[in-house]
């Protein structure tokens, strides 16, 4: 209960912090806001002083800072995210659409990375120094070092262009998920495989693991009853950290694969000085982080209840 209250307070403070900092950052960017919005709305062929004048009239820009911030905060309390300065559509509608697309992609990527990384890592950790362990080290280092932009293009070239198995870019069908999700998943799996491998090697070398074997359990039984749970604790911690990597990756992968997600949307909103869109997106993403971390903590406590009885 106390933990939930703490998280709620954290979420509230975070929301306030994000609101104020994004507001301050967007206002302190160089260049005139009306010019940037007009350029983003009408494109470089059509932005001129007349367009800017109309944008200024329509949006009543250039008012004093403090009332605008207070207005935004009161709107927030009423859960009103406002309308985009560029498209004129409601911000919450755009965020739901774009964040939804990103979350779907991120969830598939995470699931795929969990299927690829930890099982291989555990197999490698059971025989440290074996061919699988050494091979995996090379592969994981390579995948981790390769920029996602390059990995994505290589996958398109191989799977879509050479083999013709999957669509190269776009979204809409299940097939469109595979390549962008795999691009993200390979980088994530490289890390989780290494963590799982180290954890497994440590657990396998521990006295209790040796004892379990001594008392006559088969390899599979030892792994199932004494190994997996212990390995999963550092893995879940690592998963929590990977959310950040995932958000970074999504921005790049979305642009390579033409995915209509929030990474793409946020970058464009910043270029276009679409303040309500940037504030709304940052807020929703920040709160999503709090939620995911809270869930991660809860899962952590379920897996390793030691120290929670106090």
């Amino acid at each position: 209960m106390a933990a939930t209250g703490y998280r709620l307070l954290q979420a509230l403070l975070l929301a306030l912090f994000i609101g104020v900092t994004t507001f301050a950052m967007m206002r302190s960017l160089p260049g005139d806001m009306a010019w940037r919005i007009a350029a983003h709305r009408y494109g470089y062929d059509l932005v001129d002083a007349d367009a800017v004048r109309l944008v200024q009239e329509e949006l009543a820009l250039g008012g004093p800072l403090l009332p605008a911030l207070v207005q935004w905060l009161t709107d927030m309390v009423r859960l009103d995210f406002g309308t985009s300065l560029v498209s004129g559509e409601s911000v919450i509608g755009e965020i739901t659409h774009q964040l939804g697309a990103s979350l779907q992609l991120a969830a598939v990527a995470l699931a795929l990375s969990l299927l690829l990384g930890p099982p291989l890592g555990i197999l490698a950790g059971l025989k440290p120094g074996g061919w699988l362990d050494r091979g995996l080290l090379v592969l994981a280092s390579g995948l981790r070092a390769m920029p996602q932009f390059l990995l994505g293009l290589l996958l398109i070239l191989l799977v879509s262009v050479r083999l013709g198995w999957l669509p190269a870019a776009g979204h809409g069908s299940a097939g469109h998920f595979v390549l962008p999700a795999l691009t993200l998943a390979l980088g994530l799996a490289a890390l989780s495989a290494r963590i799982a491998r180290d954890a497994m090697a440590a657990v396998a070398a521990s006295p209790f693991y040796g004892f379990a074997r001594q008392k006559g359990l088969s390899d599979a039984q030892v792994l199932w009853r004494h190994g997996l749970r212990n390995v999963s604790v550092p893995l879940v911690t690592c998963l929590g950290l990977q959310f950040v990597t995932l958000v970074e990756g999504v921005v790049v992968v979305e642009s390579v694969f033409g995915w209509p997600g929030i990474g793409h949307g946020l970058v464009h909103a910043i270029f276009g000085r679409d303040v309500p869109m940037v504030q709304g997106t940052a807020l929703v993403m920040g709160l999503t982080f709090v939620l995911l971390n809270a869930l991660n903590d809860a899962l952590q406590r379920r897996l390793d209840p030691r120290g929670t009885g106090r």
Binding site: P167, A168, A169, G258
Partner: peptide
């Protein structure tokens, strides 16, 4: 109609027949 911002991605879409 799809908007694809990256020129490389557009070319690969053409080449792969997508």
């Amino acid at each position: 109609y799809r908007a694809v911002g990256r020129a490389e991605s557009r070319a690969l879409l053409a080449e792969s027949g997508n």
